[in-house]
């Protein structure tokens, strides 16, 4: 439940950062499908977590050290919202200038996704297909009876 709320909240942040397409996807895929998958897994396994008996000091140290290193690494990054950041200087101005006559779709994200970076999207579909096959093999094909175990019901793939 919380993870669904978390995803919706992330979608709201993306809207605020002018990334409407990403927000749509996050809201539908992240908050919708992900939450459903999570709830399904919880229903098929168990809702109770074993409380750890020790205090996780070592993970805490590792996390703090890594976080400090990463934050140190951000110190010479371009400032937030800076229009002169290197990321805005290359490729994108050309997309925005030539896109209307080359593709003719008002939404730049759609044009880049479907046309300029079409192979990227093809690769994405390949990954989803592979993951879907993996899920089906792991769950749908499991018709073997296991002693002491439960059989998984037929659950659809993610795509």
């Amino acid at each position: 439940m919380l993870s669904g709320i978390y995803s919706l909240f992330a979608a709201a942040i993306f809207v605020e950062l002018d990334a409407v397409d990403v927000a749509f996807t996050e809201a539908s895929v992240g908050a919708g499908i992900s939450t459903m998958l999570m709830l399904g897994t919880l229903a098929l396994t168990t809702r109770l977590e074993k409380i750890p008996t020790y205090m996780p000091i070592l993970p805490l140290l590792v996390v703090v050290a890594t976080g400090a290193a990463l934050i140190y690494g951000t110190l010479d990054m371009p400032r937030f919202g800076d229009p002169n950041a290197p990321i805005h200087q290359h490729v994108v101005p050309r997309y925005i200038e030539d896109m209307p006559k080359e593709i003719g779709v008002p939404n730049v994200v759609t044009a880049v996704l479907a046309s300029y970076r079409g192979y990227d999207t093809l690769g994405e579909v390949t990954v989803i297909f592979t993951a879907g096959i993996g899920v089906l093999v792991l769950l749908g094909g499991g018709r073997r009876e296991r002693p002491g175990g439960r059989r998984a019901g037929g659950r659809g793939g993610p795509s």
Binding site: L17, V29, S34, G40, I87, V91, V92, V135, S159
Partner: peptide, 29 residues
């Protein structure tokens, strides 16, 4: 705003859900 990260992250979100589904399927198994 820069459309290129948006495109990359759109792809990443969908791939992320696919990998999450695979991980959860492994857990069920």
């Amino acid at each position: 705003s820069n459309p290129l990260p948006h495109v990359l992250i759109l792809t990443a979100i969908v791939v992320g859900v696919a990998t999450t589904a695979l991980g959860l399927a492994l857990i069920v198994r």
